[in-house]
Design a protein around this nucleic acid. Sequence first.
DNA 1: AAGAAACCCAACCGCATTCTG
DNA 2: TCAGAATGCGGTTGGGTTTCT
Length: 264
Amino acid sequence: MGQDNEMVRKGPWTEHEDFQLVFYVRMFGDRRWDFIANVSGLKRTGKSCRLRWVNYLHPGLKRGKMTPHEERLVLELHSKFGNRWSKIARKLPGRTDNEIKNYWRTHMRKKAQEKKKTTSRSQSPSLSHCSSSSSICTCNPVVDSMPMIETKERSFYDTGGVEMFTIMKGKNNNNNNNFKTSTNSVSESTEGQEGYYSMDEIWKDIDLLDDNSIKPVFDPYSGLTASLTWDYCLSTSWATDGHEEFGKNTFSLTSKEFSSRLTD
DNA sequence: AAGAAACCCAACCGCATTCTG
DNA sequence: TCAGAATGCGGTTGGGTTTCT
């Protein structure tokens, strides 16, 4: 948290920041956020990086409207768990707690209230237990039968952290397929706009990093296609004196340096 | 057509929990 | 075992967009 004293960027993320974050998460996994924040050269807190990743950049995220099924599930799960958004999100693959939370605030709460009203009016006991209140039982076989291991459950967002790095170090990246699980466009509204670099494209580029020994990286800002060998990254002192030192020496780049260094 | 209201969602904040040395 | 750091979570805010009047 030493970076708190430095100039810390806040507010909306730029595409270049996104690209950089994805790159470094891909390299180091999505665990050590302060470390990633440091080595990436992003002037963001680890917390901010994590949030951006979890809520926007994660490859498995669904985008777009909730399906009726998801909608129903949210309603039912909320009746079971209350405002435990992360818990609810785990049952809705591709949806984030933030997304569900926002969705609930706008759509569902209103619906639930309406439902409650109509229920109380019509005095229908069969529906009353599934209203917006945080009652305990769902009585819903769909919800209740869904597999969820409470404790050791692996987070949807977890891409593997150091484990993944180990795999990459062995240059066997087959396991990384699960890293890119979605071809959904991240931003439907901006898709196709000129100059907009969608997450699809970012992922496509980053995916290429896995496929070739010389890895092309397209920097949306510089417009350069750079090449970076993993050997270059991995031949440094990663495994010896701790990640931080490695990171400072090798990856502490500003945005511009980031793209230009890659072309070397 | 313009202003107001409602909606949507990304991002921040603070607190709680877990991890690590 | 304990303190500090890191991470996770839920609540809230603010700005952009869409819909309504």
